[in-house]
Design a protein around this nucleic acid. Structure first.
Ligand SMILES: [Mn+2]
Ligand SMILES: [Mn+2]
Ligand SMILES: [Zn+2]
Ligand SMILES: [Zn+2]
Lengths: 124, 124
DNA sequence: ATTACTAATGCGATTTATTTGCAATAATTT
DNA sequence: AAATTATTGCAAATAAATCGCATTAGTAAT
């Protein structure tokens, strides 16, 4: 299943890149220039996640937010940094802070989902 | 709005207490002895959260899990500890580890949702 | 014990986010 | 240009959680 280059792919990636923050499907659809079907946007996003281009964050509001993978976490395949979701502007951003944790013996951690919710700098 | 003591409340709290872990609505409904409507279970759970008896965790699977508040976090009204969700047994548990983070100036953190996903001790 | 007040419940319908089946389209290779 | 098949659009399906509203049932006052 070789990936193909399509307008949808380009448009979605462009919007997220320009935004410089994590975005939900509906935010992307709003922001995007061309008309792309909802299901297609989700499929594009999930493919990007599979390919290590984006990573997915589940916020407290039960919605998925998608953000660019930085080069450093692409390699390690880990995205163990905090995210911040502002309740005023609904923005979700990746924080530079690494999540560090220690778990009891015998536990295997496969993914990390850490979201801080509150009010961002712009909104306070 | 004074709270009343009902069989539903007692049953829900009893199930969660016995389980000793965080549970989702459907898991509670399965485990519970008496028949309680889905909406009622959610309402009971959310009331318990409002009252500081339970706290709510949003997992990567997009489902809410409810766990008992320990006495120490009841007082501080903060639940800044890690949670672990096992992909094999679907168990969500509160870990003793405190989440510590530092955020840029001007940000106000109101809640913390940190979930590690992987394989638990029992399942590995 | 009876009554009055209203919190809590059951039920169905609704909302919201995300996924899926399938036929049609279009990117890529030959 | 033809063949191959990844990708798309559309509608329908899932799935989690909430909501409106009439009914039930705790609780406290009489
Ligand atoms: Mn917990
Ligand atoms: Mn959902
Ligand atoms: Zn903000
Ligand atoms: Zn397990």
């Amino acid at each position: 299943m070789k990936r193909r280059n399509t307008p949808s792919k380009q448009a979605v990636l462009s919007v997220i890149t320009k935004a410089g923050k994590a975005m939900s499907q509906d935010a992307i659809e709003e922001e995007i220039a061309i008309d792309i079907n909802r299901a297609t946007i989700y499929r594009v996003l999930n493919r990007f996640c599979d390919d290590g281009v984006l990573h997915k964050v589940m916020a407290e509001d039960g919605k998925q937010y998608f953000a660019l993978c930085e080069t450093y976490d692409t390699k390690a395949a880990t995205h163990q940094h905090f995210h911040f979701k502002c309740t005023k502007c609904d923005t979700v951003e990746c924080l530079p802070n690494q999540v560090n944790f220690s778990i009891p013996d015998g536990y295997l951690v496969e993914s990390v989902n850490c979201v801080l919710t509150g009010v961002c700098k712009n909104c306070s």
